[in-house]
Every structure is written in structure tokens, then in C-alpha cells.
Design a binder for these strands. Structure first.
Lengths: 231, 231
DNA sequence: CGGATGATTGATATATCTCAAGAGTAGTGG
DNA sequence: CCACTACTCTTGAGATATATCAATCATCCG
């Protein structure tokens, strides 16, 4: 097993977790660690060379945009998530680092060959892609049919659940938002002002608190869940 | 090769197209033709037995709903499309026949075994799922960031392109909508009235015409495309 | 022909956006 | 360590796109 994988923090949670040490040989030779600073674009929509990678640390956004600059965040990537589009001739979305980020990158063609050689790797990618599709469809309900209040409540709930899972330490009712208000707006299909107002409302109702602007404390998860589904 | 596949209209366009006659043996024994009438629900969200199937004829919708009954169509299924969620413990969305429909159904577990046995089948499913994910993400931009006018124009454009592809006869500028205004509204995250008004606007501008309420003629594709991206 | 369903059109209400100002917060350099 | 600058966030007032409510009009089918 290559040097790279030996001290990989996400080894068992990433796609690579499906491979044993021997199988990792070739993949590890293919992988290159790369760092990106906050704000840097990792993949431009339209790029021909569609990179594949595992996220080692940090958070990234996947965005779609209209020509006149309106932006929709269509996905967030966390450590152990897979990034990229095997088999795609070009990238369809732009991927940007939201924090300083460390990736384990693979050339697309090389990664595709690994998929050929390792059925378990492909199986896991299929399952993850199916999950992503489900999540993205659930988000379509939010974008198309939910009110601003429901959107913000759903988002906080989703985020709490997701971070709770990463944070295996156990459930905390306070977590740090990995994104700004503006980015929340881009996830929810709202404006920054509307997001801010909804957060204020939730605070006034005693359902949440914001110790700092980036931290969220959920005081009343039940009420939050109720608002997420019908407000 | 079983009786079933011998006269299958979508044999070469469906997932099964990846298999040769010998490989189709077991799959064909697994498959059962089933008909559903317009309006019938094929899969209920929450169903434990998640059915897998190929669409032989007709159109179906995949929907997500809030508890209080608001509905968002998150996908449409056409002939040769694959339906179902291998590996999912239960269905996440409801699938309903929009017209009379004919399916070639497989039990989930059986289909999963076929995926084990036929890498090419699995590969094709992976590629289709990746495509679906892309399409669904592109739709998130529409739902979150586009105006009603852009939504309707985008929808017509998308539909024309999609039907053009199926309709290998060549490009026609008139096509039949497979769905009602209400269903269009559920695809676009709008109300039925707003959809209707936007169509009226497009007619008034001479960009489209509606010979019958279910038919759309595109007089000015360039103008329609322009409205789809920035209006 | 008549009833049901779906589509259009109109009048009004309202949630969210837009524009604008001010208040936090964080990073930088003296 | 403080002050300066640049962001980001919050809050307000007003504008507007879309939803809601309601009536009429087409279309289909028995």
C-alpha cells in the first residue's frame, strides 16, 4: 500500500474503504494529494478534464449558474465524499472550495480503469450515486414547494443530522455552520436577507440560538422538525 | 432468450441492451409484463418491496410530497427508462402512471443478483444514474433560481429536445405534451394558473402556438431558448 | 346533450425580493 | 494593542412576482 493511503484520515469512510490493502496498490499510485485555498475553484463547469477525487478535509460546493450570474448550490461535499463524474466528457457543474481543502485526486481515465478492475469499488460508487440522486430529488421538493421558513428549518435540521453523523462523538445541539448566510441562500433558492430574517424568527421563537454568527444551537428539535415539514 | 424479450419494443434502448441473447436468459425469466392504467400508483413512497422495471410504453411521474399534500414531480419516466432503486430498503418516492403504461418488472432482489452477474448491466445503470443526477441538479437551478417565464420556456425546450430524440423520425416543431397543465406546474414548482398565464404570454409573443391544448408548436426556437436562460 | 375534468382569465393578497442603511466580525498593518 | 478596512450579517421600507380565490370557458366522453 502506497505512502499516500497509509495515513489517510478518511480511508475507511471513503470509496476506497471497499478495497483491501493489496487492491489499493494501483489506486494509491494514481492518487495525488492536492490542497486548495478557500474560494479556489477546483473544477469549472465545461472543463474537459473531469477530475475525480476523494475529499480528505474541508468543505466544497457544487454549483449551477445562469448566464447572468444567479447561482444555485446543488450539492455540498464533506470529508470522505467522492467528487467527480466518471465517464462524463466534460464537467457539468463548478466545484469550489468553501474552506481550505485537501483532496486525493485521480485522473479521470485512470479512475475509470480502477472501476473496471474493482467491482466492489464500482458497486459502492453506484450506491452512493443512487443516494445522491435521492437526496437531490428530496431537495427538489424543498426548492419547488416549501416556504422560506420551511426551507431554513429543513436546512438546519439536515445540517444537524449530517454533522452529527460525522461528529461521532455523539449528539451535540450546537454545531458550526460550514457556510455563510449567502451560501445558505444559494442552497435554499432564497436571498440572503430572507435567510437572515427566518433565522431571526427562529431565534425569537426560542427554537434556536446563534452563540456566534457561524454557530447554531438547536433548543427545540421537535419544533424545528415540525416547521421543516409544514409552516 | 425468453418469449418476453423476443418482441420487446425497447430491447435495444433499455438497460437490457447491454446484454446479449444468452445473458438475457435469466433476466428474461425474471421479468413479468404488467400493465397499469392512467392514474394508478406503481410504487408508493415508503413501500418496502421496491420494484425494479423497464418502461415499455407510456409515461410515469416520480413525485415527492409534503405531509399537507403539496407535490413536486422530481422525474418523468419514458419508454426504455429504468424504474426503481436497487439496494434501497424502501422506496423514497411515489411513482404514478400518467398514461396507460406497460412495464417489464423484476423483483428487486432478483434484479440485484443480475447486477452482480453482469458487469455491463451494472455499468450502464451507473452511467444512467450519473446522468439522472446531472439532470436533477440542473433542474435544481431551475426550481431555485429561475422565474416563471424561464421555467416554462425551459420546460418546453427540454421537452421538445427529449421527444425529438425519441421521435427519431426527425425534428418536428409540433409535439404532444404527455402531461396536463397541473402536472407541468408540479414539475416546475408553480401553480397551474401561473403556467397557463406564461403559456398565453408565449403565444401572444408568437413564440409558440397550441393547436390543441395538449399540443405545442414552437415557432421561434431561438427566442424560446433565449427566454429559458434569461427572462 | 350533459356532466366532469381541465384550462384560461381576472381581481386581490401576500411572501419574497430589492434597495438601502447600519451593525457585527475578522483580518491587517502600523 | 489598537485602529482601519473589508466583509458579512441584520434590519427596515417599499416593490413585485407569484399564489390564491373565483368565475368562465373549452374539451372530452358517456
Amino acid at each position: 500500500m502506497g505512502q499516500v493511503c497509509a495515513h489517510c484520515g478518511v480511508r475507511d469512510r471513503s470509496l476506497c474503504g471497499s478495497l483491501n490493502d493489496t487492491e489499493l496498490e494501483t489506486l494509491s499510485r494514481l492518487g495525488r494529494r492536492r490542497r486548495f485555498a478557500r474560494g479556489e475553484v477546483v473544477v469549472w463547469s465545461g472543463d474537459e478534464a473531469s477530475l475525480c477525487a476523494n475529499v480528505l478535509s474541508g468543505v466544497l460546493k457544487i454549483t449551477a449558474s445562469t448566464e447572468d450570474g444567479r447561482e444555485q448550490i446543488v450539492g455540498l461535499l464533506y470529508p470522505a465524499d467522492f467528487l467527480g463524474q466518471p465517464y462524463a466528457p466534460s464537467a457539468d457543474f463548478t466545484i469550489t472550495a468553501l474552506s481550505d481543502v485537501e483532496l486525493c485526486t485521480f485522473p479521470q481515465k485512470g479512475f475509470e480503469r480502477e472501476l473496471d478492475d474493482h467491482p466492489r469499488l464500482e458497486r459502492l460508487l453506484l450506491q452512493r450515486t443512487l443516494d445522491e440522486l435521492n437526496h437531490s430529488r428530496a431537495w427538489m421538493l424543498l426548492l419547488g414547494r416549501k416556504s422560506a421558513q420551511e426551507k431554513v428549518a429543513s436546512f438546519l435540521f439536515d445540517m444537524a443530522r449530517r454533522l452529527d453523523r460525522a461528529n461521532c462523538a455523539g449528539r451535540t445541539d450546537t454545531f458550526e455552520l460550514p457556510i455563510t448566510r449567502g451560501e445558505m441562500a444559494d442552497v435554499l433558492g432564497l436571498t440572503i436577507e430572507t435567510v437572515s430574517r427566518q433565522l431571526t424568527k427562529l431565534k425569537a421563537a426560542g427554537i434556536i440560538a446563534t452563540p456566534t454568527v457561524r454557530e447554531i444551537t438547536i433548543h427545540n428539535p421537535a419544533a424545528l422538525a415540525a416547521l421543516a415539514e409544514a409552516a
